[in-house]
Computed example of a mutant assay.
Amino acid sequence: MIFGSQGSGRFVDAVTAFETAVRGQNPDGAERAFQEMHRSLGDAGPHEVAQAAPRLAALLPEVPPGPRGIVAVIVGACVERGADPLPCAPYVFVELAETLAAVGEFCERWEETGGGEYPDPRDGEPGPALFDRVGPEAALAWLSLPQWEMACHALLNHPGVRTALHGSLRARLLRALRAVQETTEYDVKGLAYALLVLDDEPLVVLHRPTGTGYAMRMSGIGDNFQLHTLLADVLVGGGHVPGRAPSAQEAAVCRDAPGQVLTTGSFNLVTPGGEWVWNEGTPSDIPVVDGVRLLVLDPPPYERSWPAGRYFPGMTGDLVLERVLDAAETRAWLAGCTPPK
């Protein structure tokens, strides 16, 4: 038998046993089933992971805080192996929001009890002193953060999940993640960037040196390094503006090819108000003007190189040119723009 191709049924049986034990409040049975899920996941076939993922996701609110994050990771692993992420995502993101709320309580109690450097949640099993200091639920929420990051990245690689995520929940998650970053300095930038990814998003690009404009559409772009390379591919590589065009490989790794390739910048990305749009940021930094994101391209003030690629290797990105703006339309857009600062 090919490894994992058909599955033995053990994984689904373990999921069923875990559901029964959790809902029956049988800790010993839940622990045995939990261990069996871990052991049998590697041999599970496509039909097994497809069946198990939504069941485990729906069970998350009833799973105790200790194993809850690991169950979310198992859901993410099933999605990476082909399970449909759409029925799983609402449960995972709601539980992430609840976990982040408990992390907020952890931070408050940490400061109230003397403060100091926060423990790294990736350092493994904590001592009992942490539980005594902040309480078990707050401590477990903090320690489970890396697990929730892993699970959510697996889901957010899918455009359907990103577009279905309700705006109010997305905003709540982003506020909570910013608070974690500012308070603890624990790096949650990756998860925040994943939540900020835009899909099927209109973008008007004005190339100031040539006085030309372009209506574009972007999807799945994780940061502005990736956007910058794709802009150069479409505009310089497409023969619309002068400059250095990325190689075919440099552009491909920013769309769906694996790996990274060194590239050199072709533009300076600027807002209509003249502020720089930093490559280190995300396309969500580009301001909306009259209902569309508006970006100005100026000559680069200095040469800058970076590894071209995708911020999220599992996420497909794209930028397409829909039409070239006519001269009058471009002049109207540029008239509202100020020189770069």
Rank of each mutant, 00 (worst) to 15 (best):
V15I: 07
A30D: 09
R23Q: 11
R39L: 10
N26K: 00
A14H: 10
D28P: 00
D28W: 03
R32I: 05
V12A: 14
A17P: 03
H38T: 13
T20D: 08
D43F: 14
S40C: 04
M37G: 10
F11G: 02
V12L: 14
E19R: 05
A30C: 05
D13A: 15
R32L: 14
E31C: 04
R23F: 01
T16C: 03
P27L: 01
T16R: 09
F11Q: 10
D43E: 14
G24S: 14
Q25F: 12
S8E: 07
L41A: 11
V15K: 02
M37D: 06
G45A: 09
R23I: 06
A30Q: 02
H38V: 10
D13I: 05
V12P: 00
A21D: 13
Q35K: 11
Q35F: 12
A44G: 02
M37I: 08
A44S: 08
R39C: 00
G42M: 15
V22W: 01
M37R: 12
S8Y: 00
T20E: 09
P27W: 04
R39V: 05
V12D: 14
F11T: 03
A21W: 05
D43A: 13
G24C: 08
G29F: 06
Q6G: 08
P27H: 04
G9A: 07
F18W: 04
A14V: 10
T20C: 05
G9N: 03
G45R: 07
D28A: 12
P27R: 01
V12N: 07
V15L: 07
S8K: 03
Q25G: 10
E19D: 09
H38I: 06
E19C: 03
N26R: 01
A44F: 11
Q25E: 12
E19A: 04
A44T: 04
Q6P: 00
S40Q: 06
A21Y: 04
F34E: 13
V15M: 07
Q6R: 14
D13C: 10
E31S: 06
G24R: 12
V22Q: 01
G42S: 15
A33Q: 09
S40G: 10
D28V: 11
A14S: 15
E19P: 02
A30W: 00
N26E: 09
S8D: 09
E36D: 12
G7K: 01
H38K: 11
H38R: 13
G29Q: 09
A14P: 07
T20H: 13
R39Q: 09
N26Y: 02
V15C: 14
S40T: 14
F11I: 05
F18K: 01
H38W: 10
D13T: 15
T20G: 10
P27C: 02
Q35R: 11
G29M: 02
D28N: 02
Q6Y: 10
V22S: 08
F34I: 11
A17S: 14
D28Q: 11
G7W: 02
R32G: 03
A14I: 03
A33W: 03
N26A: 05
E19Q: 12
D13N: 11
F18P: 00
A44R: 06
A17H: 13
G7C: 06
S40P: 12
